[in-house]
Amino acid sequence: MKRQSALVVFSGGQDSTTCLFWALKHYEHVEAVTFNYGQRHSLEIEVAKQIAKEQGVKHHLLDMSLLGQLTENALTRDIGIENPEDDLPNTFVDGRNH
């Protein structure tokens, strides 16, 4: 017997697409949510939209651009990418997957 409902955090990448297909197999009703945190490569959002549409999954896009205002990093701002040996790269967005 399938469980009732699932919500998949869905970036459109390989891992979250695998999770989406797993949820579709194991749940009666599945919806997907994608977070737009102002990332440089918005292509992943378009891919997520397309996959959700192809699978008939209701897709929610949440504006999380506030993250870009809280920290300066190369993933959410138009600055050069740096990867110091003794620290995290400046593409790191603290808490983006929470």
Rank of each mutant, 00 (worst) to 15 (best):
A48Q: 13
S16D: 06
E54R: 04
T71S: 08
L61K: 00
E85V: 15
V33G: 06
T34E: 04
T17D: 00
T34D: 09
N36I: 05
D78I: 12
E46F: 10
A52Y: 02
G80P: 14
E54C: 00
H41G: 11
M64N: 05
I81H: 10
S16V: 03
H59C: 06
N73T: 00
E31R: 14
R96G: 03
S5C: 07
S16H: 04
D78H: 15
A52T: 07
V33T: 11
Y27N: 04
I51E: 00
L7R: 04
E72C: 10
K53D: 00
F92H: 13
E46G: 05
Q50E: 10
H29S: 14
R40F: 07
V9M: 14
F35Y: 13
K49C: 05
H98A: 05
L43T: 07
L75D: 07
E46A: 15
L61T: 11
K25V: 01
T18K: 00
R40I: 09
E44M: 08
E85A: 15
G38C: 09
D78E: 15
P89C: 09
K25T: 07
D63R: 10
E72D: 07
A74K: 13
W22V: 06
R96F: 06
N73S: 02
K49R: 14
D78L: 14
V30M: 04
H41M: 11
L62S: 08
T76M: 11
K49Q: 08
V9C: 13
T17G: 02
W22N: 00
D15C: 00
T76H: 09
V8R: 02
L75R: 10
I81A: 02
C19R: 02
D78W: 15
S16G: 05
D94I: 12
E82T: 15
V30C: 07
D86H: 12
K25G: 02
N36W: 11
E31D: 09
V8W: 03
H98R: 11
I51S: 01
K2D: 05
K58L: 14
Q4V: 03
I79H: 08
L70M: 13
G13L: 01
G80A: 15
I81S: 05
V33Y: 10
L70R: 11
E85I: 14
G13E: 00
H29A: 11
K53V: 04
Q14A: 07
H29T: 15
L62N: 08
Q14M: 10
P89L: 09
L70F: 08
D86T: 15
L7C: 07
H60P: 03
N73K: 06
